[in-house]
């Protein structure tokens, strides 16, 4: 499989709450650290991607957020305007008002228009080689297939017209695993794993985009070897806790409890990891990212994540 870092258009998706945006930010930061010029694009425009770099909310025009790294937020209306300017040579100034209203109408009425304007803009950046890599903080698992499949859907729905003729080159980029890949972010928990397995199958079935990797976020560290685990079981019995409390001269139930919690959480996560491995197409690269206890968000967390990703991906 083509290494993730060599692809020029990387879509990052995941179920809500698994850290999709953090991983997209970490990936963009990792590539920027490696000397590639990177555009990070947030599709849902909530400002979370910019927040991961502690940068002000970005707009449609990319702005720098560090060395080798620019950020933008998708705006389908701006994308349409840019498209019309480039392709139709429409003197745009006089028409902005009615066009904006008309756009609202068309976007509501004509399914796929917003999606195609999003995917189209991203593919355009790749085709024009404005950056080495475009990392997309894409829609969540429920919407990503609709987005990635939009060029095909339009191809089927629209028989003639400019948009139709534009979908061909987009499909060329999306379908080429040397250029484009999808990353699904998950955590080793029941629902995210189930959704990831389902999504992987759906992506293969309904889109032409290759699943390049699954990133498993918030993996808890292995605490005990089997031998140590037996000792820990002894320690966390009533007798063990009493003995420890006595030796320490302080109540140690909570202390041991925290380690027990970590062990229980890790055990249930191991099961979900196995389900994930079994459910994904053979050969799908799994990238494990540890739980970051010290920091959950902000630029520092993004840098840490970038370092962990680099370590795992190079391995």
């Amino acid at each position: 499989m083509i290494p993730l870092a060599e692809r020029s258009l990387i879509f990052v998706t995941g179920k809500g709450g698994v850290g999709k945006t953090s991983v997209a930010a970490g990936l963009a930061q990792m590539l920027a650290f490696q000397g590639r010029s990177v555009l990070g694009c947030e599709v849902d425009a909530k400002g979370d991607l910019a927040a991961a770099f502690e940068a002000p909310p970005s707009g449609f025009t990319p702005v720098s957020a560090g060395e080798n790294l620019s950020l933008m937020a998708m705006d389908t209306e701006a994308s349409l305007r840019e498209y019309l300017k480039l392709n139709l040579k429409i003197p745009i100034i006089g028409r902005i008002g009615p066009l904006a209203r008309a756009f609202d109408f068309v976007a509501t009425a004509a399914p796929g228009v917003k999606e195609i304007l999003t995917v189209g803009k991203l593919c355009y950046e790749v085709r024009e080689r404005h950056y080495d890599t475009v990392v997309v903080d894409a829609s969540a698992t429920g919407h990503i297939v609709g987005q990635l499949a939009a060029p095909q859907a339009i191809n089927e729905l629209v028989k003639v017209g400019l948009i139709r003729s534009q979908t061909d080159w987009m499909l060329d980029i999306l379908s080429d695993p040397r250029q484009c890949g999808l990353v699904i972010v998950t955590t080793p928990e029941e629902m995210p794993v189930a959704e990831t397995v389902e999504l992987a199958a759906k992506v293969a079935e309904e889109t032409t985009v290759e699943l390049a990797a699954v990133v498993v976020n918030r993996v808890l560290p292995e605490r005990f070897s089997p031998r140590a685990e037996a000792v820990f079981d002894r320690l966390s019995s009533h007798e063990g806790i009493d003995a420890l409390s006595e030796v320490l001269g302080a109540d140690s139930a909570s202390v041991v409890g925290a380690a027990a919690l970590a062990t229980t959480m890790r055990r249930s996560r191991v099961q979900h990891m196995n389900t994930l491995r079994a459910g994904l197409p053979a050969g799908t690269p799994l990238v494990l990212v540890p739980y970051l206890f010290q920091r959950a968000d902000g630029h520092r967390a993004t840098r840490q994540l970038a370092l962990h990703l680099a370590e795992e991906i190079d391995r």
């Binding site: 019309l84 139709l88 429409i90 028409r95 009615p98 066009l99 008309a102 068309v106 009425a109 004509a110 228009v113 729905l157 629209v158 028989k159 003639v160 017209g161 400019l162 948009i163 139709r164």
Partner: peptide
Amino acid sequence: PFTQVADRILGTQFLADI
């Protein structure tokens, strides 16, 4: 004017469907 633009982007059949 709107439909002129829409027609060029989307195609006549699609517009008719809408």
